[in-house]
């Protein structure tokens, strides 16, 4: 069955670009990944079965393209050197020397309702953007692309322990950012 019309594909384009930007954090790379996805979709349209939605199928292809792109970039050494992420700073700021919270987390008011609010998602995306690159990347692979910890370790060539550390830092950073910018807990 090859019932894919190139025009249908174009309709999903802007969604795919936004998806790719969240993971790649670079609009040009995201465009490239989406372009490759659409080409692959047209070439492989016989493999599309009408059982799944077109968007789900396209996102499946896009995920592979994103990973390809990250792999290619990882091979460019200068980009890795630029990653002087000292994220321990965040952890150090959140906890006192005795390991207790410097400012214990306060309750969040009606978090579930936030998910209905478009502005919340803007803040959520901004908080993602603010995280250091590798941290955000690991986190988005885990939660947004729903990859397993093992797959992420492999992709980023890091140990499992390192992977847990990155994911934990990401969650701390995101919590902090949402706390201040959305739930309005002033410290």
């Amino acid at each position: 069955m090859s019932a894919i019309d190139p025009e249908d594909l174009q309709q999903h384009r802007s969604y795919l670009v936004r998806y790719a930007i969240l993971q790649l954090r670079d609009p040009h790379l995201a465009e490239d990944a989406v372009q490759e996805t659409l080409v692959a979709a047209i070439e492989g349209r016989d493999k599309f079965s009408a059982q799944s939605s077109l968007r789900t199928w396209l996102v499946g292809i896009l995920k592979h393209k994103i990973l390809d792109m990250l792999r290619r970039r990882a091979r460019e050494p200068q980009l890795n050197v630029a990653e002087g992420e000292d994220e321990n700073e965040l952890v150090d700021a959140l906890f006192k020397e005795n390991g207790r919270w410097a400012a214990p987390p306060q309750t969040w008011n009606e978090p579930e309702q936030s998910m209905e609010n478009t502005h919340f998602w803007e803040v959520f995306e901004q908080c993602n953007q603010r995280m250091p690159l590798n941290t955000a990347r690991a986190f988005m692979m885990r939660e947004f692309m729903e990859m397993s910890t093992e797959e992420i370790c492999q992709e980023l060539s890091i140990s499992t322990t390192n992977c847990w550390v990155l994911l934990h830092r990401a969650r701390l950073a995101l919590r902090e950012c949402l706390d201040i910018n959305w739930f309005g807990n002033v410290r």
Binding site: W108, S114, M115, F124, L174, R175, L178, D179
Partner: peptide, 13 residues
Amino acid sequence: QLAFIRKAARELP
């Protein structure tokens, strides 16, 4: 909040 963050990130797509 950790549970919420996971839920939200998975809802994001």
